[in-house]
Design a binder for these strands. Structure first.
Lengths: 211, 211
DNA sequence: GACAACATACCAACCAGTCGGTATGTAGAA
DNA sequence: TTCTACATACCGACTGGTTGGTATGTTGTC
């Protein structure tokens, strides 16, 4: 019954060395749908198309995969935002508003395709796993810090209320997005999320005197 | 070893009939800390101080408790907001800004004490349990609809951009709050959350021409 | 042949849910 | 008032399946 040493069917397997990234991608997809705790290691392995042996070869625990997946999430998002066309605009405020429009355009299709992996995971793990919490914090931080320079430049170009910082507004942008995802999940529809991000866009325009 | 019919130690037990509400309160506390999937029925029972028998006497499943707890969350929040002093102000915009200040003042102490039970739960359950998703949607909806009349009155009194609705702004308020909770969990500190809600307050003031 | 990259078989702990039973209350008949 | 019949509230041992994790075997590559 077992395959002989010279099986004629090579059992088309994923190329050697791809298991790690496949597991991270599977974690992204599965956790975004069901959350972290409800996702089992077996399930992640099945989605990734590898076995448990491969899983524990690359990660010492489920928690370690979560940390690696949070780092992977940052790497996955970075080029998507950096290479977007609005980044080539000259005016920093136009780049910021372009970014918000870009985020707005992403709010479409199935819920699990536009929601945030680290935002979902940190809600479950902030109190029980400090390693996961810190990894999610780092990912969110990277996003805010990537947004801050354009905001800072816009502040310098257009002025803004005194008690406001670039990083603070970047955190507000991220906050509205995370909240939009939560609201969208309650209806399983991105309509509410688009409404909320539209309010955010209006706020930014008003802040910089462009309404 | 078993207690005799006239045990001198009455084994101080919670009063008869209190198990159901104790279980709901325990669910609120535990899920806010660890999330829904990571919280076991045994754990909820232990926190509530009842046994599994009592649990399954009152709820046919863990999912049924989740639905009841979502409804209980609405009931728990309602009087807190209704009885707050800012509700007695005459001006609707002052009531709205007072509400935001009230929410701001709540962002203090341990994370699990100010975060939202239904917001946490819906992130995990939106795709796997439609009953839980709908119960969370109803709770969030109740909040937005409670906020909408004051917003509507403020719109009528002060005017506002055309393409804006009372319920839409109420949803934006809720969205910012939910996002603030996520960001706060990231650092396990409410400072970011306060910054974000402060941006929200400034937006509302600007919208109604009060900056 | 040595080492990394997998696969397979397995385990103890834990999980949601079940079930037979007990304790407490309550309504009606005598 | 008190006894019977029944309902509700609660208890905790038990079960079958699932969980994260391990131990060991196999395969491809340098």
């Amino acid at each position: 019954m077992a395959a002989t040493h010279s099986s004629p069917v090579p059992r088309n397997r994923a190329p050697r060395g791809s298991a790690r990234s496949a597991l991270i991608a599977a974690a992204h997809a599965t956790v975004r749908r069901q959350g972290y705790a409800a996702t089992s290691v077996d399930e992640i392995c099945a989605v990734a198309g590898v076995t448990k042996g491969a899983f524990f070869h690359h990660f010492e625990s489920k928690e370690a995969l979560a940390v690696a997946a949070a780092e992977g999430w940052t790497e996955r998002a970075r080029p998507m935002f950096e290479l977007a066309p609005h980044n080539r605009l000259d005016d920093p405020l136009a780049r910021l508003l372009g970014h918000i429009d870009f985020r707005l355009s992403m709010l479409d299709g199935p819920t699990e395709d536009y929601t945030c992996f680290v935002g979902t995971m940190v809600q479950e793990a902030y109190a029980t796993s400090d390693r996961i919490r810190a990894a999610c914090e780092a990912s969110i931080n990277a996003y805010c810090e990537a947004l801050a320079p354009d905001i800072q430049a816009a502040i310098e170009a257009y002025g803004v209320p005194e008690d406001m910082t670039a990083i603070g507004l970047a955190q507000h942008v991220q906050s509205v997005l995370q909240g939009a995802f939560v609201l969208a999940k309650t209806t399983n529809d991105p309509a509410i999320a688009r409404g909320t991000v539209t309010h955010l866009k209006r706020y930014v325009r008003m802040l910089f005197g462009r309404n």
